[in-house]
Amino acid sequence: MRRDVFQAIADPTRREIIHLLADRSLSLNMVADHFDISRPAISKHVKILTECGLIVIQQQGRERHCRADLHQLKEVSEWVENYRRFWNKKLDALEAFLDEDSKKKKRKK
C-alpha cells in the first residue's frame, strides 16, 4: 500500500518519532525506549514513516539506525501555505469590511 506524508503525520506517535529524529540518528531500540508502547508497534510506525520517505534506516553493524529526512514535509508545508494565503485573504477582506462599516457608522453620528 502506498502511503503519503499526510497519513504519516496524522498519528501523534509518528510525529513524536519524527521530532526525536529531527536532529540526530537513533537506533530502533533507542527510539522505542522513548515510548510506553510495544516495540512491534514502534516498528510499525517506523515502517510507515519509512514508506513515506520521512525516515531513512541504515544498517550499522548489528543495529539499524533511523534518521529523519524532512524533505517530504515540503508537501505539507505547501499545502498549509495555500490555506494560509486563503485565510489571510478572507481575513483581510473582513477587516476592510469592518473598517468601512465603522467609518459609515461614525459619519452617521
Rank of each mutant, 00 (worst) to 15 (best):
V5W: 06
A8R: 05
A8C: 15
I9G: 00
A10M: 01
T13L: 02
R14G: 06
R14D: 01
I18C: 09
I18L: 15
D23K: 15
R24T: 04
S27C: 03
S27F: 03
V31E: 02
V31G: 07
V31M: 03
A32G: 01
I37E: 06
I37N: 02
I37K: 10
R39P: 00
P40D: 02
P40C: 06
P40S: 09
A41M: 08
C52P: 03
L54Y: 12
I57E: 13
Q60V: 13
E63R: 15
C66H: 08
C66W: 09
A68R: 08
L70K: 12
Q72V: 03
L73W: 12
K74W: 13
K74M: 09
E75Q: 14
E75I: 11
V76I: 15
S77N: 05
E78Q: 13
W79L: 04
Y83K: 03
R84Q: 13
R85T: 01
W87C: 02
K89R: 14
K90M: 09
L91G: 02
L91N: 10
A93Y: 06
A93V: 00
A93S: 11
L98S: 08
L98Q: 08
D99N: 14
D99C: 04
E100S: 14
E100D: 13
D101P: 00
S102T: 04
S102M: 08
K105A: 15
R107C: 05
R107M: 12
K109D: 00
